[in-house]
Design a protein around this nucleic acid. Structure first.
Length: 881
DNA sequence: GCGGTGCCACTTTGG
DNA sequence: TCCAAAGTGGCA
């Protein structure tokens, strides 16, 4: 949400006239550097090139995944973007369309690992390198040049040298430096020395980052109070030494019980107990750390690593494992995950600290001093590579608790690794419900904690010990998953899309969306009254009382009492129990035979609005606003999902309610209720909705190369594909196509593309199955290559066992070779759907990441980027506008 | 009889 | 025998 005045300036008028910053100009010229023809050639090239061992779809992904380039290849840029234009000679942003299809992404990061899988992977990579050396060279140079040239003004050659160095010097690479050049590239890409800095946080390349880090710290230190009050310090420096570790303890694979319980203060150090000197020493330690592993501890004693983590409990503190050096990992046999006990022996320099967040009853001044120091530490932690299970929750808490001191731009700059997301990316059918589940999965042994027969003290000791051990395990699991991601070719996707998205979602969740509570309550009453009326009408029509919301009771009335099924054709059955369905499709069929079905249809519509969008929304409200929770690992296709409320499912279409007037002579009033207008923007602001246009269909056109479908997008007069299709089918000019027609056309297209049966389509369109069958056939004849694409995808899935999106997102479909016809065909449809829907998810996430990083730089750039990116499809959801 | 839980049917959204 | 979600209420 931006200030209205600013957006009017940028969007309301001619965007081309908006002056651009230096870096924005570079981006824009790079966006324009690939002519349409060339882009199309590369598209065809991508289809025919099959020398590589990777699946064909994977070949399409660009090694340097810049959004403009990917979109270019999909024909997603507007006219301006495809006009040939020579970029300025000094630009480090040249895109080479020809390289786009040729290889899988080359990861910048290596986990020292000797297992066979890794060797095989390296071999494969080497093979690719030899075959496409030049292209990879160029593409890497292109991707890295953006990072380096702006900061160091170096040539392409210099950056390539750096790349080589990085690739050769694998065994000693540390996580943080790697992430600077891969996951952070999204943000660093936009760097320009000419750009005004928006805050004190450095946001430069790895080289400059280091320099700035030092000066940043000096700044922080200078902010510190001259005298630290540490009167209640009872612990000294020695006490935040590493926990005692038993080198011989790896006799069993995973022996929790063998760890001796120690006193909690020896386990990890509460930073509140440190003296002045120790405090600054701690800051230095964090500054030099290669990574930090963090977890939040809640009031009820649970942590982010507990399976029953504090749902209601508030945050008590944060436990941090400071990794001072990269571990010399000793991989266990047959597993890419390192045995934590073995690994334990190599980590003597690690430190554990505890940061108290909760407000206690100590003197106000001490509290302030403490908070200031905690803030300093967190500030420093945000400069490290942070590993956290459910990192989004951690970042959101930081924004919430330290909202005055830590803003979203600082969070935007940090590098977080979340093993949950890594595990989900490897197997998207697995939502990875808890950390314990993750351990269980990777060590294949039940995890139990020794908590029986203990007094309060030893119980606490054990909890602390477990926490320490869990943080170590978390680190090693993350390392293992990183290796696995590389083996699977998912590392770049993880770093460039999923990791930056964590921060975006954390920031999104801290935003408050205001809701008109009074309006909601009023609406709830109106709807309640209408429901009562409809209930009475239904009882009269049925000739008996029954529960309208109960499908079984309705089934009884419709088919046993009124026997309506005997008056029409076959009534569809429910999926699981094969009972006569009472769904919308059925009720639509029955509505001419009896008044009851129509009443039920209206009742359901009103009931849905009341329960989900009005009362449901009220129950999600906190102090007059709502904020959805976003789930990054909740879908198999890579899409995001939202809950409490599901903001993606808020009804789009307004509903008209007859409000009866109980005053004589007064006419009934018709009230229009549109759930989306119940959200209100703050004064002086407005909601801006921006959307890709026909993204899945465009992806389908790209992947299938169907000439008819491509034509639809290439014809300049075609503004909206579904409107065009609806006008063709109905034989009316496109101006006369209603919104409902367009929506129907959309559903029909997707239904047919993804393999809907004629019965389903017939129900959807209100035509006979025979007609529907004919329609499907003619559609697939007209768009012949879609069918070819579907066949090819299914075939590929049969061979490989999985399918891949354009950016390498994978979905395994074990049922693809099932004997059961039903299971097999379902897997086949899912395979086709995943390739397209997963690719759309890739692009949407990429857009989010690009837009988010550009917002942090300049609204002008953002406006240009958004408008081009989304084909200028804006709408304002605010009645005041 | 009461409350919690899981499954199912149905609805909304997105494509 | 379109795909992917979340929310609600009934029912066992």
């Amino acid at each position: 949400m931006r200030k209205m005045e600013s957006y009017k300036e940028y969007i309301g008028h001619d965007l081309c006239k908006v002056p651009l910053s230096n870096i924005a100009q570079r981006i824009m010229s790079a966006m324009q550097s690939v002519p349409l023809e060339e882009a199309q050639n590369s598209r065809e090239g991508g289809q025919t090139s099959s020398q590589l061992t990777m699946p064909a779809f994977h070949n399409r992904c660009a090694p340097a995944w810049s959004l403009p380039e990917v979109l270019d290849r999909l024909g997603l840029w507007g006219e301006e973007a495809v006009t040939p234009c020579t970029p300025p000679p000094e630009t480090g942003f040249m895109m080479k369309a020809g390289v786009a299809h040729s290889c899988e992404p080359v990861p910048h990061f290596r986990i020292p690992c000797n297992n066979e899988k890794m060797n095989e992977y390296k071999f494969r990579e080497k093979k690719i390198t030899l075959e496409n050396e030049e292209e990879i060279h160029d593409s890497l140079a292109a991707s890295l040049n953006m990072n380096i040239s702006t900061a160091e003004n170096s040539s392409q050659l210099a950056s390539t040298e750096l790349t080589d160095k990085m690739l050769c010097n694998q065994n000693t690479k540390i996580v943080s430096s790697v992430l600077l050049t891969s996951s952070m590239s999204t943000f660093i890409n936009y760097q320009d020395v000419d750009l005004p800095k928006w805050d004190d946080i450095e946001r430069n390349s790895s080289v400059q980052r280091k320099k700035n880090k030092d000066s940043e710290n000096n700044k922080i230190t200078s902010l510190k109070r001259k005298k630290d009050i540490s009167t209640y310090c009872s612990y000294k420096m020695e006490q935040w030494l590493p926990v005692k570790e038993d080198v011989n303890s790896h006799k069993t694979k995973y022996d929790w019980a063998s760890e001796q319980a120690e006193s909690p203060e020896k386990t990890f150090c509460d930073v509140g107990s440190l003296g002045h000197k120790e405090k600054s020493q701690l800051i230095t330690t964090i500054k030099e750390a290669v990574a930090v592993v963090v977890t939040m501890v809640f009031q009820d004693g649970s942590s982010q690593l507990s399976s029953d983590q504090g749902l209601v409990s508030s945050v008590r503190g944060i436990v941090v494992l400071i990794k001072r050096q990269t571990d010399q990992l000793c991989p266990s046999k047959g597993s890419s995950i390192v045995n934590p006990i073995v690994w334990d022996a190599c980590t003597r320099n690690d430190k554990f600290i505890y940061l108290k967040i909760e407000h206690s009853s100590v003197w106000e001044q001490q509290e302030q001093t403490h908070k200031k120091y905690i803030r300093e530490i967190l500030f420093q932690i945000l400069h490290c590579t942070v590993i956290c299970f459910n990192a989004k929750d951690f970042l959101r808490t930081l924004l919430h608790v330290f909202g005055d001191d830590i803003n979203w731009k600082q969070v935007a700059n940090c590098v977080v690794l979340d093993p949950r997301i890594a595990a989900w990316l490897i197997n998207p059918s697995d939502t990875v419900p808890s950390f314990e589940y993750l351990i269980h999965k990777h060590f294949e042994e039940p995890v139990s904690e020794r908590t029986v027969n203990m007094n309060a003290d030893s119980l606490r000791n054990t909890l602390h010990q477990n926490l320490v051990l869990n943080l170590k395990i978390l680190y090693s699991i993350m390392m293992g998953l990183a290796g696995e991601l590389q083996v699977q070719g998912l590392w770049k996707l993880f770093c460039t899309l999923e990791l930056p998205l964590i921060k975006i979602l954390a920031v999104m969740e801290t935003h408050k969306i205001h809701v008109n509570k009074e309006e909601l309550k009023r609406t709830s009453e109106i709807l309640g009254l209408r429901l009562k009326e409809l209930e009475q009408e239904a009882h009269r029509a049925a000739g008996q009382q029954f529960l309208l919301t109960s499908s079984s009771q309705l089934r009884e009335v419709l088919f046993e009492k009124l026997k309506l099924h005997t008056l029409c054709e076959k009534v569809p059955r429910t999926e699981m129990q094969h009972l006569q369905s009472t769904s919308e499709v059925v009720l639509n069929k029955l509505q001419d035979l009896h008044p009851l079905p129509k009443i039920i249809l209206e009742y359901r519509q009103v009931h849905k609005i009341k329960s989900t969008y009005v009362d449901g929304l009220l129950s999600c409200m906190k102090k007059g606003f709502i904020s959805s929770t976003w789930n990054q690992t909740g879908t198999v296709t890579g899409r995001l999902s939202a809950k409490h409320p599901n903001i993606q499912g808020i009804s789009k279409h307004p509903v008209q309610i007859i409000k009866k007037q109980y005053v004589k002579g007064k006419e009934n009033e018709i009230v229009t209720i549109s759930p989306r207008t119940l959200f209100v923007s703050a004064k002086g602001y407005t909601f801006l909705a921006a959307d890709f246009s026909h993204i899945e269909l465009r992806i389908l056109a790209h992947l299938s190369c169907d000439p008819e479908l491509l034509k639809l997008f290439q014809e300049p007069e075609t503004t909206d594909v579904f409107t065009t299709l609806a006008s063709q089918w109905r034989g009316i000019p496109s101006e006369q196509v209603k919104h409902a027609d367009r929506e129907q056309a959309k559903r029909v297209v997707y239904s047919v593309v993804y393999g809907a049966g004629k019965e389903r389509l017939a129900g959807c369109l209100g035509i006979t199955p025979l007609q529907a069958g004919q329609f499907i056939e003619s559609f697939l004849v007209k768009y012949k290559k879609i069918h070819d694409f579907t066949k090819k995808t299914i075939e590929q899935c049969h061979n490989e066992g999985y399918v891949v999106s354009i950016m390498g997102r994978k979905r395994h479909l074990p049922n693809i070779n099932a004997r059961d016809y039903r299971l097999r065909t379902q897997a086949e449809r899912q395979a086709v759907n995943f390739v397209v829907q997963g690719s759309a998810a890739d692009l949407c996430k990429m857009a989010m990441v690009e837009i988010f990083s550009s917002v942090a730089i300049s609204p002008t750039l953002t406006a240009r980027l958004v408008s081009q990116l989304l084909q200028c499809s804006f709408s304002f959801y605010d009645r005041s506008c």
